[in-house]
Design a protein around this nucleic acid. Sequence first.
RNA 1: GCGCCCGUAGCUCAGCGGAUAGAGCAAUUGACUACGGAUCAAUAGGUCGGGGGUUCAAAUCCCUCCGGGCGCACCA
Length: 555
Amino acid sequence: MTVTPAELSAQLLTIVDGALERRGESTLTVGIDDVSLERPKNRDHGDWASNIAMKLAKPLGTNPRQLADELAEGIRSIHGVASVDVAGPGFINVTLDAAAAGALAKTIVEEGAAFGRGTLYSGVRINLEFVSANPTGPIHLGGVRWAAVGDSLARIFDAVGGEVTREYYFNDHGLQIDRFARSLLASYLVEPAPEDGYGGQYISEIKDRVVAAFPDDLAVMPRDQQQEVFRAYGVDFMFADIKKSLHDFGVDFDVYFHENNLHESGDVERAITRLRDNGHIFEADSATWFRSTDFGDDKDRVVIKSDGEAGYISGDLAYYLNKRERGYERNLIMLGADHHGYVRRLMAMTSAFGDEPYVNLEILIGQMVNLVKDGVPQRMSKRAGTVVVLEDLVEAVGVDAARYALVRSSIDQQLDIDLDLLTKRTNDNPVFYVQYAHARTHSVARNAAASGVDRSAFDASLLTHETESTLLGVLAEFPRVVTQAAELREPHRVARYAEELAGNYHRWYDSCRVTPLGDEPVTDLHRTRLWLNDATGTVLRNALGLLGVSAPERM
RNA sequence: GCGCCCGUAGCUCAGCGGAUAGAGCAAUUGACUACGGAUCAAUAGGUCGGGGGUUCAAAUCCCUCCGGGCGCACCA
C-alpha cells in the first residue's frame, strides 16, 4: 500500500484537528495546505517533514516542541510510518518504512501517463492567449519564448483538469498591417521601403508569392488596389508561415482569432455601449473616453478617437467580452515586458465590466529574450541581419533543445540565448541530461528483458538502498510539482524537477543494478528494481511531455 | 518623476517564511575486462546588491537606498 505525501498530509490534518479539539480550540481552523509535508533537503531529517507544530504553537499559546511531541505520537500510528522524530525548534520528521515508500513504484507504472495529473482546475474553462505576433513578419526570439512557455502552461493546465483553449489573437486591423502592405508594394515597385515600414528578405519573398498567386495582371491596377492585393494576400501568406513554423515547433492553437471580426461584427460598439450603460464612458475633446482611472488606471483611455476611428483599447474591450461570452471563466494573456503598461488598463476594464481582475483576467508578463554572442548581448537589428527568428533557433539547436532552453527559466527573468553555446556545448542545455536519463531507463529495461528480469514480482521492502529511498521521494513529489506549476503559472518548475529526477536516477543507476552480474541468479530484488526503473522512465516522460519535449528511448 | 521585472558561487540560473542556501557550466582530482562515461564520486568556490523592519524562524514578506532591463500617445 502506497503512502503518498498527499495521503500523509490528509492524515496529519486529522491528527491536528484532534489535538485542537482536545484543547477545546474552535476558532482556529487548519487547512490541508497548512499541513502539507515537505521533503527535507537533509536526508537525516527523514522522508517527510512538517512545520505545523511551530505554526500552531503561538496561536495555541503552547510550546512548539511539546505540541510536536503530541502530534508525533499520532503520526506513529499511521500505516507505513517507520519512525517519527521531533527535531530542532519543533520540526516533525517522518520516516516511512521501505515497503510503504517503495509501493509507489508499482503505482506509477500502473498509472502510466496518468501519474502526475491532478484536479486543481477540473472542469474549469481556461483561455490562454499567447504569441499573438502581428502577421507582418516571422516570429522573433521573444515570441518563441511565449510559444514555448505558453504551450507548456497549456499542457500543465490540461494535466490538472483544466479545459484549455490555446488562442492566438491575430491582429489584422490597423496601421501595422498597412505598413506591411505598403512595404510589399514598395518592394514590388522597386521603391525604397517606407520609412515606417518593414525591410528584410522575407518581404521580397512574400511579394514574389503574392505576384505568383494573384490571377490578374497586377501591373495595370491603380496603386491603391495593388496595395489592397498585397495586404490581403500578403497577410494570408505571412500568417500561414507563422502557423507552420509554430506547428513545426510543436505548438498548435485551437483558435486563431481575427481582430477584424470584432470590428465587423459590431462587438466593439456593443462593448462600448455596455460600458456607457454602466456609466464609465465620457466625451471630451471630441473623442470618446473610458474612465479607467475609476478602477486604478493611471490615465483615462480613448475608445473612439476624434477622427471617428476606434482606439486600440476598443479591440481589447470587445475581445475580452467575446471570450467571456464564449464561456471562459479564466482568461490568461501572456505578454512581453514591453507591454506591462497594459496591465492596469486591462484590469480596469475587467472591473468596469463587473468581473474580478486577476481572476477572470490575468496578464502574465514575461521578460525579454536577449541574443548573446561570446558573452556580449547582440542588438537584434533587421538591417544588421542579426534578427533571430523561430526557424533560425530550431535549425540551430533543434526543437527539443530550443523549447527546453526557453522554458527552464522563470519568465520573470530575462533570458540570454547564446546560439553557439547551445549548439556546440550541448551539456550547457540540461535537456540532454534529462533525455539521456529517460533513454537510459529504456536501455536498462531492454537489458533486463534480455537477462530474464521481468516485473513478475514486486517486493517494495527490498528497496532499501539510500539512493532508492531518495529516488522514491523525488518520484512522489511529481504530482505536487505539476499542481504548483499550474497554480503559479510556472512551467519552469517542471523542467527543474525533471533535472532533479534525472540526477537522482543516474545516481541510483550507478549504485543499484537491475540486471544480475555474470551468472548471478535473477532475484526479486532485480525484479522490484525494474519496477522502480520503469516508474522513473514514466515520470521523466510525463514531465518532458508537459514541456513539449520528446522523451527518446535511444539517443 | 511614476510603474513592472531582476540583482544568489567565476558564468547561466533554481530556491513553496523553515533546519548546514542548491544545480549545470567553468576549475582541480578520481571511477569503465560492471545494465550506455551524453554518467558517477570528491574538492574548491557565497557579506543571497547595501541598510532598516516584521517573525520563534527572512534569499523569500514590508520600507528605503544603490545598480541593470523594460514601459509610461487620440501608435498599434
